[in-house]
Amino acid sequence: MNPPKAAIADRAELLAYAYAMENEAAERYQDLADQMFACNNDDVAELFARLAAIEAKHAKELVEVHGASPAPMAPGAYRWDSLESPENLPFAEMHYLMVPHQALQLALAAERRALLFYRDIAEQTDSDDIRALASEFAAEEAEHVRIVEEWLERYPPADNGWDEDMDPPMSH
């Protein structure tokens, strides 16, 4: 869990990190969408599915436009600041009754972490090449932040008692 920024050695490594982050985010949003579909929270599920599509597109561009390798590094090879890649919404933050506003707040935080991740790299690197690329990615994340902020406007915050369920849990 060492800070990776200064350690980014070259363009290939930055692309590896970028691809891993976008790809994991896409997979994570899809997993979360599946979770929400499974407990019939379709509003949040659909939001996550849309976010998954955006991140997947981003990952694909990394490969097609920038020549990133879709081969992942070993799980232990990445050095994130956090337990997971910054753009991942932690599984632990989920609740089956969560409302879109809550989901989008989590997404916003994730997109901001991604933005910061690239911005820090751009600021800390000695390489012009890496700085240019990281800045480009940071700009894209800023766009994601903007999109999510815009979406957030459309949904009301959660009411008090949003997590109340009058039925007991089911046993199996």
Binding site: F91, E93, M94
Partner: peptide, 11 residues
């Protein structure tokens, strides 16, 4: 698809 509760560590 898993049947676990969202938030569960098992995911």
């Amino acid at each position: 698809k898993p049947v676990w509760c969202p938030g569960c560590g098992d995911f």
